[in-house]
Design a protein around this nucleic acid. Structure first.
Lengths: 329, 329
DNA sequence: CTGAAAGCGCTTACAG
DNA sequence: CTGAAAGCGCTTACAG
């Protein structure tokens, strides 16, 4: 094993062809005769040749890197999404540059990373982007998708579960189950998911002349646990809870249980996401399943098309999920 | 906003200096006068200049990318590790290329990704590497650390919690708590963590003339849940369980609870990792806290030194964690 | 299909 | 400290 400094030139010499031919073998779409291809491949194998990605990117001005920005790694929903995007993109030769943000809106330093590496595309899983930042990506012809978050502006492409339909269905379901007082426990106030889930739920309650009790929380287990304890302390328990995501719902469930409140008899709980833990026997949480596979497929289809030929086309895509009934209702 | 194609040459022209001077301003360590630096910076700002990372890497043959390989995204321990590495490396200008593997030993396709991108270093969080693959990294002078996994070969640098001490302490603790029959629930059989935890635990049991009941599982919630159900079915319950990681321990706890086995009275359970969920009131799991912060700091210190000046120096680093006593003992 | 040559945007000796 | 020039390892017109 030589100290790995084999270039196309070396391969060319050994194969007895020009450096351009070597390049063509590794560049899909270029035309090379079967014979040269074989010679090159053989020589390359012997020398341990590996095309230099940077030289490549320098010329083509494009990379095989997807920037994936994530905030909430504590919510198991997102690591799962990360894993699936990574495997799916790997199949078509793309790698993932992982960016972690602490803010709901991505900041300049993270945007710079994405721009410096000329990523082929960016996926933002649970954060948003300022209009200015979006402009920068547009200028660089880098397609962006907001995954599980949306912005009511025509300049963003987003892929979400259909939150409105979902929360309406959840409302109807809880009412059909006999609830006549209902509470909504919201996630972070400025997130599109929490807002839409509240909206759909409210619509249905209004239709049935039920007033919504609304509580604010933050999409974390502890947030759900704490707010449930506050509600319990008030000695006034609604017939049912719609909790904006599963991880909060687990906190709610634990708080209720600690206070010997029997579920689904004393009150009912519905979550959102269908994370793995929702199915654990301790929780057995009724929840709304996000169609992750379809959401990922949709995201990738768009991105691949845009990488091929950038248009900047924007749209809010919403995909239907489904209710998973377990033992908390 | 122009269509972002500003090069050092453009900046040079506007600033009235040579392209080399522009380059020097952005290359730390190069000497430039205060005056040219200012002129360049001003021109760069006006044009929105951004040094091209690829051109850079092409020459220096090094990148600011760290390859991070991860297997078990389902175990919350690892997403947390990913997040912390990402934030810490970001502070010193490095980004994370995320690689997901399905295998306990990293395969060729993933290694190729790391090599193709000439990552500055690689971290493998819960998988291992063949000796051959390690050689490839060595040839390319890419430092590698095994995080939370180790191999008894002198060629790997690894950073782990001190699993032997930990499991001995857990053994002593359970015995002091009055257990006279004890079981160990192992994780994936070929992992260093599971092997060492068993070893330390066994040592202590032997010392106290207690025979180990050993059960095999796979480091997942379901694995823990299933094996616990099997044990319960045998109508023979040990006084205490040491479960090789927390996520399995949660499964064990749920199975015991479903069978109305009262903890810590009928039996006791100790986990390992101290993941966030271990502290949830439903579980309140006694466990061993892995010193993540220290493990990460140690990993980074080594990697930074090796990136600066590669030696290939290898060692198994073990850092002490501590017992967190909660309500399952 | 193939080769010679230009050039992507930088860094880095080499002079001055 | 600074500029002119070579060169990193590729892709891609341009001829043939």
């Amino acid at each position: 094993m030589l100290t790995q400094k084999v270039t196309a030139k070396d391969v060319a010499k050994l194969a007895g062809v020009s450096q351009s031919s070597v390049s063509r073998v590794y560049f899909e779409g270029a035309s090379v005769s079967q014979k040269t291809r074989e010679k090159v491949l053989e020589a390359a194998k012997e020398l341990g040749y590996r095309p230099n990605e940077f030289a490549r990117s320098l010329i083509t001005n494009r990379t095989k890197i997807i920037g994936l920005v994530m905030k909430g790694v504590q919510n198991p929903f997102y690591p799962e999404v990360l894993k699936q995007f990574t495997s799916e993109f790997k199949k078509i030769g793309y790698s993932i540059l992982f960016v972690h943000t602490n803010n709901d809106e991505i900041q300049k330093d993270d945007i710079d990373i994405l721009l410096n590496y000329h990523v082929a595309a960016v996926i933002i899983t649970d954060a948003t982007l300022s209009l200015n930042a979006m402009e920068e990506f547009k200028d660089n012809k880098i397609p962006v998708v907001l995954f599980n978050r949306k912005i009511e502006k025509s300049s963003f492409y987003s892929v979400c579960c259909n939150n409105l339909n979902a929360s309406e269905a959840i409302g109807e379901f809880l009412i059909a189950e006999g609830c006549s007082t209902l509470a909504y426990i919201a996630g972070n106030a400025n997130t599109s998911t929490s807002i839409e889930r509240e909206k759909g739920f409210t619509t249905i309650l209004k239709k049935h002349h039920i007033q919504l009790e609304k509580y604010s929380s933050d999409y974390t287990y502890k947030g759900g646990y704490d707010i449930a304890n506050e509600i319990i302390a008030k000695k006034h328990l609604p017939d049912g809870f719609f909790v904006a995501n599963d991880i909060m719902a687990l906190g709610v469930l634990d708080a209720l249980r600690e206070n010997n409140i029997s579920i689904p008899f004393d009150t009912k709980v519905v979550g959102f996401d269908n994370i793995e833990m929702a199915a654990w026997p301790t929780y057995n949480l009724t929840t709304w399943e996000q169609p992750i596979d379809k959401m990922i497929a949709e995201t990738m289809a768009y991105l691949i098309k845009e990488i091929e030929h950038y248009t900047g086309f924007a749209k809010n895509i919403e995909i239907d999920g489904k209710l998973i009934v377990r033992k908390t209702t």
